[in-house]
Simulated assay, not measured.
Amino acid sequence: MRSETATEPQGRLLRAWQLAVLRFAVTLDDDDRMHVLAVAGEVDRLSGASEDSFHFFRRTTAEMCQAIAGQDAHGETVIQRFLAQLDNPRLRRAFEAAITKDRTPPKIVTSRLKPGNDLWRGLPSRRTGT
């Protein structure tokens, strides 16, 4: 139980980092880029990395931001590697939707949209046969 307690803050911080990356993917705003880099620095600090050591999350975040913004020739590879590491299917789908070039709704959403007004179809009528 002690090991679960020790990794709980790391898990929450990792989730915060993933959500910050998603937010940047949606907004492409420089403030969100700076926020995700700050969260990455916190994850690296929490993992015990010293100032002069290799900073995995900072480096990965910089690569992700460049790939999302379309400033990296190998951006698709970086993004696919990030997607493969996401364990939450809803977060993965949200990220995929955020980085699509044409911003069309994913197939799962478009299959739910129905043309016409079929709201009451299939329900019994209120008319009583008196």
Rank of each mutant, 00 (worst) to 15 (best):
D44R: 03
A94T: 03
T130N: 09
S50N: 09
L13G: 04
P9D: 14
A97D: 12
T130C: 09
T104W: 08
S3A: 12
P105K: 00
A62P: 13
N88D: 15
F56A: 13
W17T: 01
P9C: 13
R121L: 12
Q71V: 14
R81W: 09
E63P: 01
Q10G: 10
T77R: 15
S53V: 12
T27H: 00
K107E: 13
N117F: 08
A69C: 11
K107P: 12
V36S: 02
V36Y: 01
R90M: 10
T130M: 07
P89K: 00
T128G: 12
L91H: 09
L119D: 09
R2D: 11
E8Y: 14
A38L: 08
N117D: 14
A67Q: 03
A40R: 06
E42N: 02
R127L: 11
P106D: 07
V39E: 03
R45H: 13
K107L: 10
L119A: 07
T27K: 00
A97G: 10
R81Y: 10
G41L: 01
T61E: 06
A16P: 08
E42M: 02
R81T: 14
F24N: 12
L123E: 05
G70S: 02
R59H: 03
P124V: 05
A98S: 13
T110V: 11
T77C: 13
V26A: 02
L83H: 04
N88R: 05
M1L: 14
T27G: 00
A67G: 06
T5V: 15
I108D: 13
L14S: 06
P106T: 08
A38Q: 08
Q71P: 12
T77H: 15
D32G: 04
L91D: 09
D44A: 02
V36E: 01
L22K: 05
L37N: 07
A16G: 08
W17H: 03
T60H: 03
H74N: 09
Q85S: 00
L13W: 04
L119T: 09
C65M: 01
T110P: 05
I68M: 08
T27C: 00
N117G: 07
V43W: 04
F24Y: 15
N88K: 02
T104L: 10
G116V: 13
K101N: 06
T100C: 04
